[in-house]
Structure formats: structure tokens, C-alpha cells
Write a protein that binds this DNA or RNA. Structure first.
Length: 166
DNA sequence: AGGCTCATGACTC
DNA sequence: GAGTCATGAGCCT
């Protein structure tokens, strides 16, 4: 049986993100929901010390990336996905700030050069956008490609990092 | 440049 | 199994 995730907000100059934690680490990060102005404050009571510590790291990392810098130290990640998806997410974490790769390059990097489309699928299934930088994956011609959180987010993040794209 | 078609792998129902 | 893609390459116009 699955224990529910602890949900904590992160206020940034780009809106309020929401982080979710399991007992093993950061499990999900969600973009600010549009149309929803604010959300109830979460009491620090009842939240374990490790989660509070992880949350500070998450918030700092998120703000760093939003400012176009490297995230620094991340909390432990508790990623739920297939082996294929996890291998894609591992490859994404190697893309440095300001750099980009194509879906095809990721496919080759994980040893499945023909699984290009599947790489796109795995990017879309990424539970921790921004910190696992799925926004740094472009189509082959440096065109923008897609983004599950909305293309504007992808453009914004890339622009803040100074990456080159169309 | 844009548009179409096809091969393709993982995932979902 | 069929249908769905955040692709990519090739071939048009």
C-alpha cells in the first residue's frame, strides 16, 4: 500500500510551485497552476525533519534554476517510473544549464538510438520538471519541440539559462 | 520555409 | 492489439 505524499508549496517570482515528498525523497514537482491565485498555507507541524530539510534544498535548487543558475545540491529523488523512463531522466540530468540536446541525442546516449519518440514520451512523464531539466531537450533542428507544462514554460526556462533555440 | 508520409519504441487502455 | 505521441529523415512544392 502506498502512503500519500507530503505536499509543500514553494513561492517563487514565477508563481507558487508545489513539491511532493515520499519518505524516500522528492517525488514530484508541479508548475504553478494558472487560474488558482493562492493556496492554503501548510503548517510545519507533523512534517518530518528529513522532509523539511529536503524541502529547503528543493526550494533553493528551484530558485537557482529559475534564475538561470545551476541547481546545486538536490535532495534525494524518489522517482516512480519504468527502467526506460529512469534511464532517460538520468541522461537529462547530465545536460548542464544553458546547454541543450535533441531527443535523438538522448536516445543515443541511453543506447537506444531508434527510440527517439519514446524519449519524448519519457520526457513528458518526468515527475520533476525544472530540476530534471526536460526543458533542455529540443527537436533535431533546434526547434522548440513540446512541453507538458506548456511551451511558454519551456521558452522561459531556456531563455533564463541563455540557451539557443528557435 | 512549410507540409506530408513513414518507420519507430514505449506506454496506455 | 490498437491507438497515441514532447521524433526524425526523406521527399515533395
Amino acid at each position: 500500500m502506498k502512503t500519500p505524499l507530503v505536499e509543500l508549496p514553494i513561492s517563487t517570482n514565477a508563481g507558487q510551485f508545489v513539491a511532493r515528498y515520499s519518505e524516500k525523497g522528492l517525488a514530484e514537482l508541479r508548475f504553478p497552476s494558472v487560474g488558482r491565485a493562492s493556496q492554503r498555507a501548510v503548517k510545519p507541524i507533523g512534517i518530518s525533519a528529513p522532509i523539511r530539510r529536503w524541502h529547503r534544498a528543493t526550494a533553493a535548487a528551484l530558485k537557482a534554476v529559475l534564475a538561470g543558475r545551476s541547481p546545486g545540491k538536490l535532495p534525494p529523488l524518489d522517482l516512480a517510473g519504468t527502467e526506460f523512463q529512469k534511464s532517460v531522466w538520468r541522461a537529462l540530468r547530465k545536460i548542464r544549464s544553458g546547454q541543450t540536446k535533441s531527443y535523438g541525442e538522448i536516445a543515443r546516449a541511453i543506447g537506444k538510438p531508434t527510440a527517439v519518440r519514446a524519449v519524448g514520451g519519457a520526457c513528458g512523464a518526468n515527475p520533476i520538471p525544472v530540476l530534471i531539466p526536460c526543458h533542455r531537450v529540443l527537436a533535431a533542428n533546434r526547434k522548440i519541440g513540446g512541453f507538458s507544462g506548456g511551451l511558454n514554460w519551456k521558452r522561459t526556462l531556456l531563455a533564463r539559462e541563455g540557451a539557443i533555440f528557435r
